[in-house]
Computed example of a mutant assay.
Amino acid sequence: MVFTDTNENMPLASIILVTYNQVAYVQEALLSVAGQTYGNLEIVVSDDASTDGTFDLILEFCEQYDGPHTFIINRNDVNLGVGGNYAKAVSLSHGELVFVAGGDDVSLPSRVALVVNFWLETGRKFDLIACHLIDMSVDGTCLGEIKVSNLSAYTSLNDWVDNPPHVIGAAQAWTRRLYDLFGGLPKGVVGEDFILSFRAISQGRAVTLPQPVVYYRRGGLTNKQKAMSAQQVIAGLSKKTKSSFLEWSLLLGDAEASGASERVMSYLRLHQQREICIEEMLLNNRPWRALFGCREVDLAFRLRVFVYAVCPELLAPLFFFKRIKYTGQA
């Protein structure tokens, strides 16, 4: 379903608004992207098979919308996950510059105009532009500024290895040429911001525009919670190890295609092997085999995961004091 009315005097920009079970927040997110001051904008809303009424609200909003921007609406028949939903949304978009938006976040009205103007003023040379964010509680209270890493300081993947940057995709924009150059994002990817910033740095085309452009809501789908028991650590590691293995494998291929140094390749291979070690111990129930077989991985790391796999009760005192520290309860 497409709603159109564009101004073709400026480069076409796209916002991809990805949603999943965010019925309480999606209308605010929709209002924020529809309220962008930039003239030539399309908004692709891709819902990942929500079950809570999110898509009904999206349809209702777009049917009533009479503003200047283009809306393209999609609902996946089945849940594709983060990477799959991003890939679907991008396939429906047409802009030279693509902005990422979450279904529970709020973009400032000037977000797109600010970044597009910066991109044009710098000769369109950058393939990824990161911005800062405003930390926001679940109820909408502003809690301060979140600063991402200064990507301008990363001149090569060697810099990336020395100090992997802190990035948040909800305030990123990237070019279609970057996305297409590396073949997009496959299903199973979770850290799309991690991958795309790596790719842009590999080309020497990443930059940070140090201004907040998004209210970033806490408690979202990718929000990290502190684990308060060994069982929670095991569940977290088990849940993410397959996507992490996929992502490190992607980066290996991207780095090789970019002519990265052996130091970069070794770093990436090590992290890939760490995910294999975790999978062997926690998912495949082969802790002894991994302990003695994954020799590329640091022994201390292997022993730590081994304890979680074989005798997690030994860690009970550690988590007892951790719960007291962070929650005041045992």
Rank of each mutant, 00 (worst) to 15 (best):
L196A: 04
L157T: 10
L128R: 05
I15N: 11
K147C: 14
N163S: 11
F245H: 11
F301M: 11
E296F: 01
V2K: 13
W160V: 04
L282H: 09
L157H: 05
C311A: 10
V2D: 13
K242E: 14
N285G: 02
M10N: 06
V115P: 04
V213H: 03
F118L: 09
E121M: 10
V90Y: 15
K240H: 12
G67Y: 03
F3P: 02
V100A: 14
E42Y: 05
G191E: 10
V26M: 06
G328W: 06
F118N: 07
C62S: 05
L250D: 00
L221Q: 09
A235F: 02
R263W: 00
A130W: 01
D47P: 07
L251P: 03
I201K: 08
A24E: 13
S238I: 08
A13D: 11
A206I: 06
K88M: 12
G83F: 01
N21I: 01
D48K: 13
G183N: 09
C294L: 01
I43G: 12
E63W: 01
S110K: 01
I58C: 12
M281T: 06
E8P: 07
Y326Q: 09
L114K: 14
Y308T: 03
E296A: 12
Y216F: 15
V264H: 03
K187V: 15
D139L: 09
N7C: 04
T327Q: 09
T241G: 00
N9E: 11
I16E: 05
G188P: 09
V18C: 10
Q211C: 02
L30P: 10
Q272H: 14
L196E: 04
L151P: 05
M136E: 15
L221A: 13
A153Q: 12
S261D: 12
T70K: 13
K226I: 15
G183L: 02
L178M: 04
V106Y: 15
L270M: 03
A173S: 15
P186H: 03
Q329Y: 05
V233T: 08
V45Y: 01
I168E: 02
E28Y: 07
A171T: 05
C311W: 07
F198P: 04
I324F: 14
S91E: 09
D5V: 08
A89N: 08
R286W: 01
H132V: 02
S261A: 11
R111Y: 15
I168F: 08
Q273C: 06
L283W: 00
T51A: 07
G293W: 04
V233Y: 01
I15T: 08
K325T: 06
V2P: 06
I146R: 08
D298I: 09
L299M: 05
G84A: 11
Q232A: 15
I195L: 15
E192C: 11
Y215R: 13
Y86T: 11
M281Y: 11
D66P: 00
D104V: 07
